[in-house]
Design a protein around this nucleic acid. Structure first.
Length: 220
DNA sequence: AATAATAACAACCGCCGGCTG
DNA sequence: TCAGCCGGCGGTTGTTATTAT
């Protein structure tokens, strides 16, 4: 049984104080991101290395872009999630200045709920058939007109197990032009056996990490 | 104005894979 | 070859802020 990394009772937990932040910033500005396990002691912090790493990567790094996610970013997150599942670090890697934690939080607090409200399963981006009937009968117009609708999803007939139609946001092209910072070109050549991105299984969790990494590297 | 409910975000936990001695 | 350390990742929890009643 491995010891927890933060077993020392003298290790601080919880929110970081301004003094702690400054110590970490000062240290990294002078010495760079080195060995995280040795940084706390060297910087005079009563934190574990993991905590320092997380604080730096998610909050203190100077290149972090804070604030509200733009529509471009939200669209991209949804597209990437449809492709990659909960691989937040990979998704964040395509969003300059955003961290995996931030993307994950944004997904869980904003996008997920939005998709659910639209009748889209956030796990597989499928719109179930009873929802399709409802939306096609009454709200297809609003879906068309509302560009905040998931920019990439397939409507899925759960009964017949088939994709009824798929759509992408017609905003795609303009976002690609308007946001030069974002790599929105998702014209990814998927390996032939893995083209069905609405596939339920295997889920990300059912693959080994090695397999997942190999697959993703092949895609990206 | 007080309280409850909900949303948003920061941080922790535990697992995994890579690396090294 | 293998055990242990370390960094990275995703899931989850805790705290604070905001909104509704």
């Amino acid at each position: 049984m491995r010891k927890p990394c933060c077993h020392k009772e003298s290790t601080n937990k919880g929110a970081w104080s301004k003094q702690e932040d400054q110590k970490l910033i000062d240290y990294i500005q002078v010495h760079g991101e080195g060995c995280w396990s040795s940084i706390p002691k060297a910087a005079g912090l009563y934190r574990c290395g993991k905590s320092c790493r997380l604080r730096w990567l998610n909050y203190l790094r100077p290149d972090i872009k804070r604030g509200v996610f733009g529509q471009d970013e939200e669209d991209l997150i949804i597209k990437l999630h449809a492709l990659l599942g909960n691989r937040w670090s990979l998704i964040a890697g395509r969003l300059p200045g955003r961290t995996d934690n931030e993307v994950k939080n944004y997904w869980n607090s904003h996008i997920k709920r939005k998709l659910i409200n639209m009748g889209i399963d956030p796990n597989n981006h499928k719109l179930h058939v009873h929802q399709i009937h409802a939306t096609s009968a009454s709200s297809s117009v609003s879906m068309k007109n509302d560009h905040r609708v998931s920019p990439y999803f397939k409507c899925y007939d759960a009964v017949n197990d088939e994709v009824l139609f798929s759509t992408c946001s017609d905003k795609k092209e303009t976002t690609m032009v308007s946001s030069s910072n974002l790599n929105l070109d998702l014209t990814i050549a998927l390996p032939s056996p893995r083209v069905d991105i609405v596939e339920d299984k295997p889920t990300p969790n059912s693959e080994s990490r090695t397999e997942r990494k190999e697959t993703i590297h092949a895609w990206l």
